[in-house]
Amino acid sequence: MTETALDRARAGDEPAFRELTEPHRSELRLHCYRILGSLDDAEDLVQETMAAAWKGIAGFEGRASMRTWLYRIATNRCLNAKRDAARRAPVASPAPYRVPEANGRNEVTWLQPYPDTLLQRIADGAPGPEARYVGREAVELAFITGLQMLPPRQAAALVLRDVLGFPSAEVADMIGTGETALKGVLQRARASLDKHRAGEAPPPPGSDIDRDLSRRFAAAFCAGDIDGVVELLTDDAWLSMPPTPETYRGLEAIVEFLHAGAAWRGGHVVRLVPTRANGQPAFGYYLAENNRTPAHSAGLVVLTLSGDRIRAVERFLSPGPLHHYRLEETLDAAH
């Protein structure tokens, strides 16, 4: 940040303001996503953050860095959004076929995946030296889901301190508390998050196990080979379709759900196009009437891997803009 650019921005120069703030846009979007669990909401909140920063730049005294100042604004905008009674989870359309009764319920129905292409655009995402959760671990779906289960201020404190590594004094100031109180907030948040996250560590992205599980799942799923899909799952695996609240936990429940879907699908063709989200294997999900007709997007499937098996299959009906995943809305018959 140059003093000249800041002086120009304070004087109302929009290009100078963008020069100061645009380098932080991608990491602010990820920050808002972690707290809100929704890519759509994160996009909106970053816009609000930039609008508020532009409005307040004349009073910015530079006591903290531009990055810290923007994070303070973004965090408070996110906390306000979480408290807003008007904020509602997306309404799920009923399934086009009779689904079996679920044996679990998803409390985080607003969750959306986060495209790996957007993770790659973060220029300076290196956390501070005291961060507890780093790299892939801090973007996995299980981690993001766990954050949504926390009270908003606990989630914000944990992300700022344990993911981004901001100093305790700055975090306390950002969320409006004292450093002593912050310690208690973080202790409770860490304990709750650790209870939510379980399972073996996933294989490294792009490893032989990662690629093999993805390939075998896609082949079995597209072929309607339910036994082949189940063979890849852990005994405690689950299947869900956010924003619907129903969750199918355990192999028996998943098999029943897959059979119901296969019966409805009939002669329709399923196509899965590989991509990645939240550092995990993912697929664009497409349906076609037959092999000679175009296939239309019907969501995004994300796999959570555990050791050499799949622990969760989540099909997101509203994953956000497909171009972020380098996917098309429609595939021609020759795809």
Results as ranks from 00 to 15, higher is better:
T2N: 14
T4Q: 12
T4R: 12
D7H: 04
A9R: 08
A9G: 05
A9K: 11
D13T: 01
P15E: 10
A16M: 07
R18G: 01
P23H: 12
R29S: 03
H31L: 14
Y33F: 15
S38G: 03
D40H: 11
M50H: 08
M50V: 02
A51G: 00
A52W: 03
W54S: 00
K55L: 07
I57M: 09
F60N: 10
R63A: 12
R67Y: 03
R67S: 09
L70Y: 07
L70F: 04
L70G: 02
R72N: 03
I73K: 06
A74S: 14
N80V: 11
N80W: 10
K82Q: 12
R83I: 07
A89K: 09
V91I: 13
S93N: 04
S93K: 13
P94V: 15
P94Y: 04
E101T: 12
E101Y: 01
A102Q: 03
A102W: 01
N103F: 00
G104H: 09
E107G: 01
E107H: 06
V108N: 15
W110H: 15
W110K: 14
L111I: 15
T117M: 05
A123I: 14
A123K: 15
D124Y: 04
A126W: 03
P127I: 04
P129Y: 10
Y133I: 09
A138H: 07
E140C: 13
L147N: 13
Q148T: 08
L150E: 01
P152F: 04
R153W: 01
A156M: 03
R161N: 08
G165L: 03
F166S: 04
F166W: 14
F166M: 15
A172Q: 11
G176Y: 07
L182P: 00
V185T: 12
L186P: 08
R188L: 03
A191G: 03
A191S: 10
R197K: 06
P204Q: 10
S214I: 03
F221D: 05
C222D: 06
I226G: 12
D227V: 09
G228K: 05
V229Q: 10
V229S: 07
E231M: 01
D235N: 11
P242Q: 05
T247Q: 07
R249M: 03
R249L: 02
G250C: 11
G250H: 11
L251W: 03
A253C: 09
V255W: 05
L258K: 00
H259E: 11
H259R: 14
A260M: 04
G261L: 02
G261K: 04
L272E: 06
L272G: 04
P281F: 01
G284I: 04
Y285T: 09
A288W: 03
N290E: 06
N290M: 10
N291R: 12
A295E: 12
S297E: 08
L300G: 01
R309K: 15
V313N: 02
F316N: 08
L317N: 13
L317A: 08
S318F: 14
S318E: 15
G320M: 13
G320A: 11
L322M: 06
L327K: 14
D332Y: 01
